[in-house]
Computed example of a mutant assay.
Amino acid sequence: MSTAPWRQSRGRSISVLDLPCAERTVGVEAALKLPNVMVLVVEDTCAQIAHEDWQHREPTRWHLQAHRCWRSEGRLLRAKKTRLKELATHCLDAPD
């Protein structure tokens, strides 16, 4: 997750959070004001950390059982990413 300053049309800058798992961005202000958006930010951050950890733990192909378990964990992480995309749609695109 990263923040990037953006400029609004009036010259005022706002900060935006990048949510890589949900493949979205969200304003910091919205994340601080809306609990469901904050949950999305936290869940996305946790999923990103878990994915990076998973990538660094890839066992060698010589250890067949360990590699099978590792791939299974990867499928679970991809499923979580899909759920985060759905949560992002629900939280960010739902009419108020």
Rank of each mutant, 00 (worst) to 15 (best):
S2E: 15
E23V: 12
H63I: 00
P35N: 09
W70Q: 05
L87P: 01
L32Q: 13
T82W: 02
R78Y: 08
E43H: 02
M1H: 05
R61E: 13
L64V: 15
H90L: 07
E86Y: 00
R7N: 09
S9Y: 02
T25Q: 10
S9C: 00
L17W: 15
G74V: 07
V41E: 01
V28E: 09
G11L: 00
E29H: 15
W70V: 07
D53Y: 09
A47M: 08
M1N: 07
L17D: 04
L84G: 03
V39F: 06
W70G: 00
E73I: 00
S13V: 08
V26A: 13
M1G: 08
E52F: 01
S9H: 02
H56G: 15
T60F: 10
A4G: 06
L92E: 10
A79H: 03
R78I: 01
E86R: 01
E52P: 02
D96C: 05
K81A: 15
V37H: 12
C91Q: 07
V41T: 11
E52K: 11
D44R: 13
N36P: 06
W6S: 15
W70N: 02
A79Q: 15
D93C: 05
A88I: 00
R68K: 09
V26N: 04
V16T: 01
L87N: 02
W70H: 10
H67G: 03
Q48V: 12
E58V: 05
A30C: 02
K85H: 04
H90G: 01
L92D: 02
L76Q: 11
R78G: 06
E58W: 10
Q55F: 06
D96S: 12
C69E: 12
L64A: 14
T45F: 13
R61L: 12
L64F: 14
A50L: 05
T3S: 11
Q8D: 14
T89W: 11
A47T: 01
A22T: 06
N36M: 12
A50S: 11
Q65D: 10
R12E: 13
Q48E: 06
L87F: 09
C46F: 14
V16Q: 05
V16I: 11
W6R: 15
E58T: 01
P95C: 10
R10S: 14
P5M: 03
D93S: 10
A88C: 06
K33D: 07
C69K: 13
L84I: 05
S15C: 11
P20K: 06
S72D: 11
V39I: 12
N36R: 13
D96I: 08
T89Q: 09
L32T: 01
S2A: 14
S13E: 12
D18N: 11
L76S: 10
S72Q: 14
R10P: 02
V41L: 14
V41C: 05
L84N: 04
T25Y: 11
E29P: 02
G27R: 09
Q48R: 13
R71Y: 11
A30R: 03
